[in-house]
Simulated scan of single mutants.
Amino acid sequence: MKSFSTAFGVAAFASTVAGHGYITSPQPREPGDAMIAACGKQVANTFSSDINGNIQGVLQIAPSQSDYDADKCNIWTCKGMQFDDNTDNVQSWTAGEKVPMKVNIAAPHTGTANVSIIDTASSSPIGEPLIAWSVYASTATGVQANQTSFDVTIPSDLGSKCSTAGACTLQWWWDSREADQTYESCVDFTVGGSGSGSSSGSSSGSAQAATSTQAAASSTKAASSASATATAATTPVNNVLTTSAAATAAASSTATPSQGSSSTLPEEFTAEQFISWFKQVTGVTNARRSLRSHPRAF
């Protein structure tokens, strides 16, 4: 449970982070004492002062702090905010349930975005994104209504993966190559049974200790240790590193693509639509084999 008691103002970070975006509903993770223990006081205080801040700004300074533990903090998942600070705020959903979400965009930066279910033990997505945008918060066209208020549907094939509090989070991920900044926000939840698909967002008053149903993986920790010196050659997207060619192609498209076109991606797209678009843009005929040859890229 959260009992955040340290001072919020940290001058060293004031110039590195500015407000950009965060989930406002359902209730997202917030900083607390567990985050201080894992990420250090300055990282936790920075996101307490500005919940909307980006990861890259913090990583300009965090690795030099003696109380920053990259492995424990796991900053590329939920910006390092810890489940132990949020055990009294766990949503209870059912398979097939439609969950309404709201996001505050404090400052737009053209980029890509998605909402995915994250396995917290491996810091990796479970399945495909529940919703995705190839152009998000564009500085050319402005923030669209369906980018700040939308629904996601809880998959029916999760089994028992997310039945224990702390095992899964619903993560909103916004990556702007225009600004070289990444923003995240997470909602803790559990899933049980099957639902009717009606909208809901109820909160459970109690939560069990976090355990994992999958073995921990090291790929995200490697991304975290390399993130302080990340360049345009790689882009962190959903806890893996995406090649700049794919990220730039998605982020640089400012026109609104038509839903029926195979040569342009719609703002919300499926894996099959991406593969079709990839073939059109690159001329590669065997797109699936090409994508499998670069598994860290997608």
Rank of each mutant, 00 (worst) to 15 (best):
residue 56 Q to T: 14
residue 196 S to G: 13
residue 93 W to C: 03
residue 87 T to R: 00
residue 295 P to Y: 01
residue 265 L to C: 05
residue 71 D to M: 10
residue 117 I to T: 03
residue 284 V to H: 03
residue 20 H to M: 10
residue 97 E to C: 04
residue 217 A to W: 07
residue 268 E to F: 01
residue 34 A to E: 09
residue 67 D to R: 00
residue 169 T to E: 12
residue 243 T to D: 14
residue 208 Q to N: 12
residue 102 K to S: 04
residue 55 I to C: 04
residue 45 N to T: 15
residue 232 A to P: 08
residue 147 Q to M: 08
residue 10 V to E: 09
residue 144 Q to G: 06
residue 143 V to T: 15
residue 19 G to P: 07
residue 208 Q to D: 13
residue 165 A to D: 12
residue 202 S to Y: 00
residue 213 T to D: 01
residue 237 V to P: 04
residue 111 G to Q: 03
residue 130 L to D: 04
residue 154 I to T: 05
residue 222 A to W: 11
residue 261 S to Y: 01
residue 233 A to H: 06
residue 97 E to M: 09
residue 193 G to H: 02
residue 128 E to G: 02
residue 163 S to L: 02
residue 46 T to A: 12
residue 194 S to N: 11
residue 86 N to E: 08
residue 118 I to D: 13
residue 167 A to P: 07
residue 109 H to F: 06
residue 270 T to D: 04
residue 185 S to I: 03
residue 134 S to E: 07
residue 176 S to V: 12
residue 271 A to K: 05
residue 267 E to G: 09
residue 282 T to W: 00
residue 78 C to P: 05
residue 211 T to M: 06
residue 135 V to C: 15
residue 254 T to N: 12
residue 167 A to D: 11
residue 125 P to L: 06
residue 101 M to Y: 01
residue 228 A to N: 13
residue 156 S to I: 13
residue 276 S to C: 05
residue 63 P to W: 07
residue 267 E to H: 05
residue 271 A to T: 10
residue 215 A to G: 07
residue 277 W to S: 02
residue 136 Y to F: 09
residue 116 S to N: 09
residue 196 S to R: 11
residue 105 I to M: 00
residue 31 P to F: 09
residue 180 D to G: 09
residue 185 S to R: 07
residue 194 S to Y: 14
residue 174 W to V: 04
residue 239 N to D: 10
residue 95 A to I: 08
residue 240 V to W: 06
residue 142 G to T: 06
residue 35 M to A: 09
residue 248 T to P: 14
residue 91 Q to G: 12
residue 24 T to K: 06
residue 272 E to R: 03
residue 208 Q to T: 09
residue 77 T to R: 06
residue 128 E to D: 13
residue 76 W to R: 02
residue 110 T to P: 08
residue 182 T to P: 09
residue 122 S to C: 11
residue 228 A to C: 12
residue 12 A to P: 03
residue 9 G to H: 00
residue 195 G to M: 10
residue 12 A to G: 09
residue 103 V to A: 02
residue 202 S to A: 07
residue 147 Q to S: 05
residue 240 V to T: 11
residue 294 H to T: 15
residue 85 D to T: 15
residue 271 A to V: 12
residue 114 N to D: 14
residue 246 A to D: 15
residue 147 Q to F: 05
residue 102 K to Y: 04
residue 99 V to G: 15
residue 295 P to I: 14
residue 169 T to K: 03
residue 160 S to M: 02
residue 291 L to W: 11
residue 132 A to K: 02
residue 261 S to N: 11
residue 272 E to I: 13
residue 20 H to K: 04
residue 43 V to P: 04
residue 100 P to N: 07
residue 35 M to Q: 08
residue 147 Q to E: 15
residue 106 A to N: 05
residue 127 G to D: 07
residue 191 V to F: 02
residue 61 I to K: 07
residue 60 Q to R: 01
residue 187 V to W: 06
residue 153 T to W: 00
residue 278 F to G: 05
residue 237 V to M: 01
residue 236 P to A: 01
residue 70 A to I: 10
residue 250 A to Q: 10
residue 88 D to K: 04
residue 204 S to P: 01
residue 103 V to F: 10
residue 4 F to E: 15
residue 188 D to E: 06
residue 240 V to M: 15
residue 11 A to P: 00
residue 149 S to N: 13
residue 243 T to A: 13
residue 67 D to A: 08
residue 68 Y to R: 04
